[in-house]
Design a protein around this nucleic acid. Structure first.
Length: 931
RNA sequence: GCCGAUGUGGCGGAAUGGCUUACGCGAUCGCCUCAAAAGCGAUUGUCCCUUGCGGACGUGUGGGUUCGAGUCCCACCAUCGGCACCA
């Protein structure tokens, strides 16, 4: 037995250096091999690597390694999404330049990333805030601008008058800026947009994509295609108001109209008497965010404009209101209100006493509901009533022309020139302007003559000036004269665009830059693209479902249509490969969940004092043993669930909370903390939630690596959670992985047994090995990392028992252990490399082929026949795997359990379930007896 | 509010419509030790009784489909993610 103990701190850096020196993970084009482009979402350089980064990246790395061992030439790059708001916030609060802050963070995170032992090809690293990178971000903008994919339009922003700046949504809290608490208003500005909507129909097609179903559904809903009609209403003054409706069949029930307060017609149609009220309401609406405005629970508010419109189908005179539940960003910013059929309209009508006309007699009802007594809108199926020409036609509850009533209404509208059948989308164009410093400049010049031109290609990139003052007030770029003042293409003085680009722009094409991060003739080298594109596997958080991932798809389609892939496609063709349509950037997508903070119990205390109005004013507070709970005449005992300053919320059992106030002169004793204690040292319960520094529940991966080694942390990331779900951190469970790796280490260092071995045991081990190969291969393929580790632990247990029983010859031991190390290699790359070398096998384990699964070696001869009555198991019988149906039924009926349950009676029915054939698992025959 | 997801032992989790709880953590008991840690071995869903090769119950709640439901369907509750300027 070797005395040598597993010490990751010495072996891990050693192998990392060796791999780096040998360029073991350098990925180069090799047309003789199949390729696999594995991509994981790049991090924002926020400061330190977070445990969430480990959770996202190390399983993805393990899978990339698995693909490599399976014979693929794998590219697994890494970079930084380095533009963004936090850098500016650091500049404001700490006076550090955003570039200084960002690059210092990147430097630190590079080191931390290297400690993962991942197979990142660092020669392909890309940083989006490098001029060499954002030159191409700007170049894309220019190409889009020149091809009518970018345009100027109006959109509202969060404007802080106090800060003279535009704020991000997260900087606005409850209608006020987070720094000064001054009001923020919604202000219209002219900004840059991409024609996102151009590809909306193509983005609804997921045929070629192996993406999670929920992501596809969310994107589909985000695009929000609906069928209906455009109908023009006219005001009594003759102004046209265009509306969109998915329920043209309910037009006869439209008893009023509602315009978004921002609607262009509002000021024009408002009558003098209503002027003041309308203006006040418009101003009030400017304070609310879109999200708040959509909240249905919110009480409906609105103001009458004083104007009337004419319902085009029945000439009814209907009032025109404005209300914030109608959004200017959706449809035309105006609606016909049908309070009978739409819940929001219904509530609005009730609130303001507006007419409600019933237009659908509900299916199965023998009368039409009385609008005066209805408690909610009716939007179900039924027969049209009070609807002129479409009376009596059924609405079957389906959408669009699938409903006879909607079809009839559409025909009527078209025939009478009242409206047009139309498709509408929820998706809006992509607003890419940001009034910020730390982003890629928009390469546009405003000429003195009013013209707008893109910066010449040979003058890209427009570089961000470094000499700026970031104060949080105003926009640093527009205050920087040397940046703003420039010349147009005719050498006339001109003004530079000072908006920068949305950082989603930077992260919409980074996987192309990885192909050739130093290439200076184009965003990427076509020779590399021809081989590596498209991305085969993309992993990242599901929180990117609709925004980043839809932008990425849009970008690829725009690039395709501008011919940016043509050269790569031609090169691929020369190599005999037909490229798939590169309009889809990633073929397979998988999401990991989030690691949440660890639950922490609060101190259990005994507080003694006096009760006043149900609240205990404490004289003494002592931390006592957990579990003590209760309320006495002058005391409260229990766990602290919450603490706000000196007020404790104490759980006293039975779900009861008591409030304890701790005055400054109270005596506090916490046995764990010597010396005099104060109220701030009392720990309160921490719920499972996102980690954040302010909550004090951050898990630091550097410390874990120091304590356990990278392999253990990697393996725990994969073993301790369902990867797609994530979950709360648990600092105890890592112990299982520690024991596993220690035991594997000791097993190899103990060396091969010297005994003769036992044929039956060796056969069992061979079977276990091949069953494990099947399980681990399937688990790795399916991103089910926890079951891969579990299967490897099981194999280790089986192997240990066989060694203990002295059942293995040296040769059998070598075969089993070698294969076990190969199966572990993607998960724990350092320890397996070390043990591989220890066994005298050739460097590197990571260049070996994945063990081959042999069905015949995994086969079993016997299995268990399960006998059920209903879903209850009454007997288990050991039988041959190829048992016949008749034999199985006979054995089942003869079993004690079945006899007991039948109690002498005859079964009604006997069902035989053969059990499916799964690689690496015995069949599971069953007999179900119906009594 | 809308869209999407999740809910299984004390805990993390596993499970193709077919043996619930694999694998691991923790706990309990034992071995080892002067002792502790580590390690090793055993036990470990809940309840009931006549303590057995026993019975009942058990996958958020309430219904349903099925010979059979954690899994499918309906309704509800709770939690998490996204909602267009956080990334």
């Amino acid at each position: 037995m070797s005395e040598q103990k597993y010490n990751p701190q010495t072996i891990e850096p050693r192998w990392q250096q060796r791999w780096e020196a040998d360029q073991l993970y350098r990925s180069t084009v090799d047309w003789s091999k199949p390729k696999h482009y594995a991509l994981t979402m790049l991090p924002y350089p926020s400061g330190d690597l977070h445990i969430g980064h480990w959770f996202a990246m190390t399983p993805s790395d393990a899978r990339a390694r698995f693909m490599r061992m399976q014979g693929y030439n794998v590219l697994f790059p890494m970079g930084f999404d380095a533009f963004g708001l936090p850098a500016e916030q650091a500049a404001i609060s700490r006076g550090v330049h955003p570039a200084t802050w960002t690059y210092a963070n990147i430097e630190r995170m590079r080191k931390q990333l290297r400690s993962m032992g991942a197979m990142f090809d660092w020669q392909r690293e890309a940083v989006s805030s490098d001029p060499a990178y954002y030159k191409w971000t700007e170049w894309f903008f220019k190409r889009f601008f020149e091809n009518d994919l970018a345009y100027r339009g109006e959109a509202v922003v969060n404007w802080s008058d106090a800060l003279q700046t535009v704020l991000a949504n997260e900087q606005v809290i409850d209608g006020k800026d987070e720094r000064l608490g001054q009001p923020v208003i919604q202000k219209k500005m002219t900004q840059w947009f991409f024609r996102y909507t151009r590809y909306r129909d193509e983005m609804l097609n997921f045929d070629r994509l192996d993406w999670p179903e929920p992501i596809k559904i969310m994107q589909t809903n985000w695009i929000g295609k609906s069928e209906g009609a455009h109908v023009t209403f006219y005001t009594e003054g003759g102004d046209a108001i265009l509306i969109y409706t998915t329920r043209p069949d309910t037009l006869w029930g439209a008893t009023f109209m509602v315009l978004a307060p921002e609607h262009a017609l509002v000021s024009k149609i408002t009558t003098p008497e209503q002027q003041a009220a309308v203006q006040a309401y418009v101003a009030q609406t400017a304070k609310a965010t879109e999200l708040e405005r959509q909240a249905e629970a919110r009480e409906k508010t609105g103001v009458f404009t004083g104007a009337y419109a004419v319902n085009p189908v029945n000439q009814a005179r209907i009032p025109i209101w404005i209300a914030d539940y109608v959004l200017s960003t959706y449809g035309s910013g105006a609606i016909m209100a049908v309070p009978y059929g739409d819940q929001r309209d219904f509530e609005f009508a009730r609130q303001f006493g507006l007419d409600i006309v019933a237009v659908v007699q509900p299916e199965g009802a023998d009368s039409v509901p009385d609008p005066a007594t209805m408690s909610a809108a009716y939007d179900g199926a039924g027969i049209m009533v009070n609807s002129g020409p479409i009376n009596g036609i059924a609405h079957n509850g389906q959408k669009g022309r699938k409903s006879p009533a909607i079809a009839a209404a559409l025909d009527y509208l078209e025939k009478n020139g009242i409206g047009k059948e139309a498709v509408n989308y929820r998706l809006r164009d992509w607003l890419i302007s940001r009034q910020r410093y730390w982003g890629a400049p928009i390469p546009i010049i405003f000429r003195a003559d009013g013209g707008i031109e893109a910066v010449r290609e040979d003058q890209l990139p427009v570089e961000l000036p470094i000499d700026v003052q970031i104060t949080g007030v105003g926009n640093p770029l527009s205050q920087h004269a040397a940046f703003v003042n420039t010349y147009d293409s005719d050498e006339n003085p001109a003004r530079r665009e000072t908006d920068t680009m949305d950082t989603f722009m930077c992260s919409s094409w980074y996987w192309y830059r990885y192909l050739s991060p130093n290439y200076s003739a184009a965003p990427f080298d076509a020779e590399e693209a021809a081989y590596w594109l498209p991305v085969d596997t993309y992993t990242g958080g599901a929180e990117h479902a609709t925004m980043h991932l839809l932008y990425a798809r849009w970008f690829a389609k725009a690039m395709r249509d501008l011919g940016m892939f043509d050269k790569a496609i031609a090169i691929a063709k020369q190599h005999g490969r037909t490229m798939p349509d590169l309009g889809e950037p990633m073929l397979q997508l998988r999401n990991q969940g989030q690691i949440l903070g660890e639950e922490r119990p609060g101190h259990t205390i005994m507080a003694t004092g006096t009760f006043k109005q149900g609240k205990l004013f404490a004289k003494k507070v002592a931390v006592v043993a957990p579990g003590s709970m209760g309320v006495g005449e002058n005391q409260v005992m229990g766990e602290i669930m919450k603490r706000v300053e000196n007020v404790l919320h104490v759980h006293v059992g039975g779900g009861d909370l008591r409030v304890v106030e701790v005055p400054a002169d109270a005596e506090i004793s916490i046995p764990d903390i010597p010396g005099p204690n104060n109220v701030n040292q009392l720990k309160h319960h921490l719920d499972i939630q996102r980690m954040s520094k302010s909550k004090g529940n951050v898990v630091n991966p550097d410390e874990l690596v120091k304590q356990y080694g990278a392999d253990t942390v990697r393996a725990y990331m994969m073993f301790g959670f369902d990867w797609s779900q994530g979950g709360p951190w648990n600092s105890k469970n890592i112990q299982g992985v520690v024991r596993w790796l220690n035991e594997v280490w000791d097993m190899v260092h103990a060396g091969a047994p010297t005994g003769e071995g036992n044929a039956a045991v060796e056969r069992d081990i061979e079977r276990a090995l091949h069953q494990t190969i099947a399980k681990v291969s399937k688990s790795m393929t399916d991103f089910s990392f926890n079951t891969a580790v579990a299967a490897l632990m099981t194999l280790k247990n089986t192997l240990r028992d066989a060694i203990k029983a002295d059942g293995l010859s040296g040769q059998a031991w070598h075969g089993a252990v070698q294969n076990m190390l190969l199966l572990m290699a993607p998960i724990t790359p350092h320890i397996t490399e070390e043990l591989w070398a220890k066994m005298g096998l050739p460097y590197s384990i990571h260049q070996q082929a994945w063990p081959r699964y042999d069905e015949s070696k995994a086969a079993v001869e016997e299995t268990v026949l399960v006998v059920q009555i209903g879903s209850k198991v009454v007997a288990r019988i050991s039988v041959p795997v190829d048992i016949s149906e008749a034999e199985a039924k006979r054995l089942a009926l003869e079993s004690d359990g079945a006899k007991r349950a039948l109690n002498g009676g005859a079964p009604k029915k006997v069902i035989f379930i053969a059990g499916r054939v799964t690689p690496g698992r015995p069949p599971e025959p069953k007999v179900n007896i119906v009594v």
